[in-house]
């Protein structure tokens, strides 16, 4: 029979052996790059040159009007998408929590936007808003004349982020819906029955029972979506290359150019990271019970 202390020691060793692949991968592909990113941000870093410039990159970025425009677009995009998908998700969850014929089909349909591969669905959206062929401009522009028939929503850097926001809401509200629905289903029916006996109106029941039960999950989802949407690249870039959020701003300075400015891009990435860290800390402190 082994002694307790050797067993604990063995367990300790085995534990580390089992997590070592995870830890090694994390170190090489996350921790080191994050540190390296901060390091690069203090250099004037191009393809051939690298000279130490201190906080010059940060000053340059903070004085750059284009950066601030992009920053506010990103904040606007994040707020719009979080708010939009939260409201839509809540509404759909409340409706689909009621019994009706064909509910299971509708529940499957609602999940479609979220599970369809991104690349399969972006072209359809691009087609809808395409200025020459798309049905959106065809109906609202050429037939109803509510908008200008020449309106190009996708390739205009002033309003491309609106289409990107709508697309993002469309794609991500099912996630919010699922989270809220699973919480709704766990609210005991007795609460409502008791309220009914007291003669509460449906609205009263909603504000006094449903909403308080949902506060926590809604806050958690909002924060999570906020974090994800703040650095969202693929979904925005594939809809419109002109949407101009910060991740695209970084991408254009590194990949989409012949004279990449790694230092400046790294500085912007670091700023993005600091903001995200704030949100993540909030998430971990308020929401998470790992």
């Amino acid at each position: 029979m082994q002694s307790v202390s050797t067993m604990l020691k063995n367990e300790n060793r085995l534990g580390w052996r089992l997590v070592s692949p995870t830890v090694i991968l994390l170190m090489i592909l996350i921790l080191y790059p994050v540190a390296y990113n901060i390091y690069i941000s203090f250099f004037d870093y191009g393809i051939t040159r690298s000279t130490f410039v201190g906080i010059d990159n940060y000053l340059r970025v903070l004085k750059d009007g284009a950066f601030w425009k992009s920053f506010f677009i990103t904040v606007g995009f994040t707020l719009m998408t979080v708010g939009g998908s939260l409201l839509l998700g809540l509404g759909v969850a409340l409706m689909l929590n009621k019994e009706f014929k064909g509910r299971s089909i509708v529940r499957t349909i609602v999940l479609l936007p979220y599970i369809t591969p991104l690349i399969s669905i972006v072209f359809s959206w691009q087609y809808i808003f395409d200025p020459s062929l798309g049905p959106f401009v065809e109906i609202f522009g050429r037939q109803l004349r509510w908008i200008s028939p020449q309106l190009d929503l996708l390739n205009n850097s002033n309003n491309a982020f609106i289409v990107a926001s709508i697309f993002n809401i469309w794609r991500n509200f099912p996630f919010v819906y699922l989270m809220i629905l699973s919480r709704l289903q766990s609210i005991p029916d007795e609460y409502y029955e008791a309220a009914e006996m007291d003669g509460a109106s449906p609205w009263k029941k909603f504000t006094n029972i449903t909403l308080p039960e949902l506060y926590f999950v809604m806050g958690a989802v909002a924060l999570m979506r906020g974090i994800w949407n703040f650095y969202k690249f693929d979904e925005v870039y594939l809809i419109s290359k002109k949407a101009g959020t910060l991740p695209i701003f970084i991408y254009e300075r590194v990949i989409g150019t012949t004279s990449p400015e790694f230092g400046v891009a790294a500085a912007i990435a670091t700023i993005l990271m600091v903001i995200m860290l704030g949100l993540i800390t909030m998430y971990v402190k308020k929401v998470l019970k790992w």
């Binding site: 995870t22 790059p33 994050v34 703040f230 969202k232 990949i255 995200m276 993540i280 971990v284 790992w290």
Partner: peptide
Amino acid sequence: VQRSVLFVYLFGGTVIMVPLYQ
């Protein structure tokens, strides 16, 4: 270790793109 895994869960690709590429 669990916390750093969680950190990556919420962490984006854009932020580490420059260093990974470099």
